[in-house]
């Protein structure tokens, strides 16, 4: 194999999604909101499925989250993540009515159960991309 190892996947933002990534770069989880009917949606998309408005604004997430489900990645499907294994991917309910997928920090998968309270944090990876992470709301 003469190829160099591929790096971690990087987003290729569109005009519709760029504000989300700009927010993360500043350590803020920004959620898209319909400027007409007020419905919050995630992931970012050009149209509100409820009222079909394409007018959008952005609101910062409260930072609260609860566990909806999770998995623990053990198999290296991507060479760039091999050194991170095993890692826990949590699907979390946000009080804003959408879900967030992020890696778990400062806890083991065994501690997880649906409804467990988490806090959203931020981490920059080796490629300079800031991503959300999730931590237990109450340490220990």
């Amino acid at each position: 194999m003469s190829q160099t190892m591929p790096g971690k996947p990087m987003p290729d933002p569109s005009p519709d999604t760029q504000p989300y990534w700009d927010g993360l770069a500043q350590g803020r989880l920004m959620l898209q909101r319909c400027a007409d009917c007020g419905r919050i949606r995630h992931y970012p998309q050009p149209m509100c499925a409820a009222c079909h408005s394409m007018a959008t604004d952005w609101v910062e997430a409260s930072g609260e989250a609860t566990v909806h489900s999770w998995t623990v990645a053990h198999h290296p499907f991507h060479a760039a993540f091999r050194a991170d294994l095993p890692y826990v991917l949590v699907t979390a309910d946000l009080p804003e009515g959408v879900r967030l997928l992020a890696q778990l920090r400062d806890a083991e998968a065994e501690a997880l159960r649906p409804g467990l309270k988490l806090r959203i944090g931020f981490e920059q990876n080796e490629a300079g991309l800031t991503l959300p992470v999730l931590r237990p709301a109450t340490p220990g």
């Binding site: 996947p9 489900s69 990645a73 499907f77 991507h78 997928l101 890696q103 991309l129």
Partner: peptide
């Protein structure tokens, strides 16, 4: 969509997308 918003966090393959469905089923 998952490529932009989930793959950077390490959700990259069908097993990783579907496992939380199974875990949720187990939990419920």
């Amino acid at each position: 969509i998952v490529g932009e918003f989930e793959a950077p966090s390490g959700a990259l393959a069908p097993a990783q997308y579907y496992a939380p469905m199974a875990r949720r089923h187990m939990a419920m």
